[in-house]
């Protein structure tokens, strides 16, 4: 697998971190949907986006992998997807966390 920071490395240098999924809004989501979010994975056939960690550098990145062929289509830094600071509104609604 090609690590975006370190280049191609043996797969034994990496740890899988689950599918890249958005988190539902904890304030509005139902208990059942939250349980679905934390316990279930889609397990789709085809190209999926996954978190991978290069262990030696503790570097998280994203890989697009075809679950049918196990082919890694591409890898890129997580900052390509997560570009903005995430804030959680205080319940009752008065702006960001800090």
């Amino acid at each position: 697998m090609r690590c975006p920071l370190n280049g191609p490395r043996n797969i034994s240098e990496f740890v899988y971190g689950g599918e890249v999924v958005g988190m539902p809004d904890p304030e509005t989501v139902s208990d059942a949907d939250w349980a679905d979010h934390v316990f279930l994975e889609d397990n789709r056939r085809g190209v999926v986006r996954e978190w991978w960690l290069h262990v030696a550098t503790a570097y998280w990145f994203i890989a697009e992998r075809d679950t049918a062929t196990d082919e890694i289509v591409r890898t890129y830094p997580s900052s390509d997807v997560f570009t903005e600071r995430v804030s959680f509104p205080v319940p009752g609604g008065k702006g960001g966390g800090t």
């Binding site: 370190n6 490395r9 034994s12 240098e13 290069h54 262990v55 030696a56 550098t57």
Partner: peptide, 11 residues
């Protein structure tokens, strides 16, 4: 620089 596994430890 190579940041990698040497004898199964990070180095």
């Amino acid at each position: 620089i190579a940041q990698t596994s040497v004898a199964r430890m990070n180095a």
